[in-house]
Write a protein that binds this DNA or RNA. Structure first.
Lengths: 329, 329
DNA sequence: AGCTTTTGTCGGCCTTTCCGACAACTCGA
DNA sequence: TCGAGTTGTCGGAAAGGCCGACAAAAGCT
């Protein structure tokens, strides 16, 4: 059932959000077992029998861009090989040969919109923001009355969706009518979820979704506050997988695979080696001003969240960037 | 565009009709160039330069069960290799090793129904004959009120169709509601066409269609009596293909491929060698009673059409079974 | 602040399709 | 030929979805 099919990296990134960065192939990263563990629903009991290092220098062997067959949630499968020199101050090289063969994909034009009540519930229509219609969709023939066309979009599974795109009403506005309702029903979208439209290099339209609440599986958790209610919101990764990865990272030199769900709330656990090394040199202390980028809902711009570090968690210095993140108000 | 994908043989046979028989692999058949030519829209001008024999003994190398991507019409691609001994009285062996590896597929349960006006036009529903609902579809939970289920059927292209199957009304009857209208529109079905439902060995449901009138391509030939009107109803095969096959059959020993459209009105041109040999021994003459099987519209049973041979066409005795067929009233 | 442009929501209305009633048909006795 | 079971067709009714009107929200000067 679970096909190992990699999807369009541009669409993947559009669904993941522009803040998500995946390390390039052959670059060096630090793998944080504890950060990985926080992506698991259940707590991971690391065995005391073997010492698990807080961070392991690895090389990125391959990255597969995936999407959940059920929910369309995007995730990545990253293959890592532990490297010999595990000291933080070596291996600053990111391994990116500038003009190299690093699958440098052009950043495709994309637009995301959070669904309104009318988009999600009423009469099966979608109000298309002008910018989206003019930059993503094919150009309408405005001489027609009314201007109409069929927009064909491909989703993360390669499935085709046809939408009737019409420019009508007083004042004139862009709308998706026929086909939209089927899309909303099939994807189980509700007001608050987002839709991403993306124009590929070849002119084709891709469509992805970002859910407001990351649903727990397929269960009808909405409304009925069962045992699903007390989940922390992540929990996409099984504890066994974390244990297995951590063991592989600490012990041998053999490659291991980690699944990375960019839209869960947990900390990153694969961080560019150079970033870690830079950060380690900064003497974090109380009262220091801290600037953090985050994405606005409609991804139309990037805002900056400026906070102040209230305390430095000395207990586990290796956990950056986890710790500072948590300490911000 | 034209995928070389072979489809389920059972579904193929269900769409072709139960009278259609495809010779098994490795069996011997007679190939009739003139019969083949009658499957072409345009007349085929056989060159006088080379003598084309009326029938060629061939071995069946392979059979591919195909369906037209546009119209769903089924056809077969049969690979034939001309054999050395081209005399009618040799090679009576059909090549069927009884317990052999001849892809003996179990005959799946199937049901065909000709669409009524109500099925094709009105309110998007399909009246399911009781027999079909009870033998082909999954068993309904009759304790529910009303009993409903979703029937998922796969068509000749592997595409999934979902139909709401409900048992309701007074008196109670089986109906397909939601999903049926989309199927009719997509397949461009009209009253008089037939739908075939088939239960595969694994329990899955397959669906196929048989058109009442074999449409010529996709053109809107209905209504406007253009040059399409004077076609003879077959014409699926290009004259070039016939010529090429005939040359290959008469000349060399190399394999050649013929496309066979079972639902065209022309005569068979690949006939079991044993059948031909048997028939050749019968001294056909005027007044002889003749019994011919044909299929009733809904394929629920086989009827027998009994005719009388009015004359024997001596001009081209090699053309059996073509000639007797035509002579029947 | 005031104007313009954009877009969310609403009620009206048209189309689709779901439904039981009824009658026509089929099949067997 | 008659009766029981089955199924085709119809009109009413409900649901889905397309539409412009209007106004709220956002952007610009």
């Amino acid at each position: 059932m679970e096909l190992e099919k990699s999807l369009d990296p541009n669409l993947w990134h559009a669904c993941a959000g522009s803040m998500v960065q995946i390390p390039p192939i052959n670059s060096k990263v630090y793998y944080f077992p504890q950060g990985h563990a926080e992506h698991s629903l259940n707590s991971v009991d690391f065995p005391f029998s073997r010492q698990i290092p807080p961070l392991v220098l690895c090389r990125v062997d391959s990255v597969k861009f995936m999407a959940d067959g059920e929910t369309d949630e995007v995730y990545a499968k990253i293959m890592l090989t532990p490297l010999q020199n595990n000291e933080p101050d070596v291996g600053d090289d990111d391994g990116v040969s500038n003009g190299g063969c690093n699958n440098i994909e052009k950043k495709a034009a994309s637009f995301a919109k959070t669904l309104t009540q009318s988009d999600a519930n009423n009469g099966g229509g979608f109000s298309v923001p002008r910018y989206c219609a003019e930059t993503i969709f094919p150009t309408l023939d405005y001489s027609a009355d009314p201007p109409v066309q069929t927009v064909v979009a491909v989703d993360v599974h390669g499935q085709l969706w046809k939408f009737r795109h019409i420019y009508r009403g007083t004042p004139r506005r862009h709308l998706l009518t026929t086909g939209w309702s089927a899309f909303v029903n099939r994807k189980k979208l509700v007001a608050g979820d987002s839709v991403v439209f993306l124009r590929a290099e070849n002119g084709g339209i891709l469509v992805g979704i970002r859910r407001a609440k990351l649903g727990i599986g397929d269960g009808d958790c909405y409304g009925s506050l069962g045992f699903c209610g007390n989940s922390k919101g992540n929990g996409k990764v099984k504890p066994e997988e974390v244990l297995e990865a951590a063991k592989a990272a600490s012990g041998g030199r053999k490659p291991f695979e980690v699944a990375y769900y960019p839209r869960t709330s947990g900390p990153e656990f694969c961080v560019k080696a150079s970033a870690v090394n830079t950060a380690m040199k900064v003497p974090w202390c109380c009262g220091m001003r801290f600037k953090m980028a985050f994405e606005t809902e409609d991804s139309s711009r990037i805002s900056w969240f400026v906070g102040t570090i209230s305390s430095v968690q000395v207990a586990d210095p290796a956990r950056w960037p986890d710790s500072p993140w948590r300490l911000l108000e």
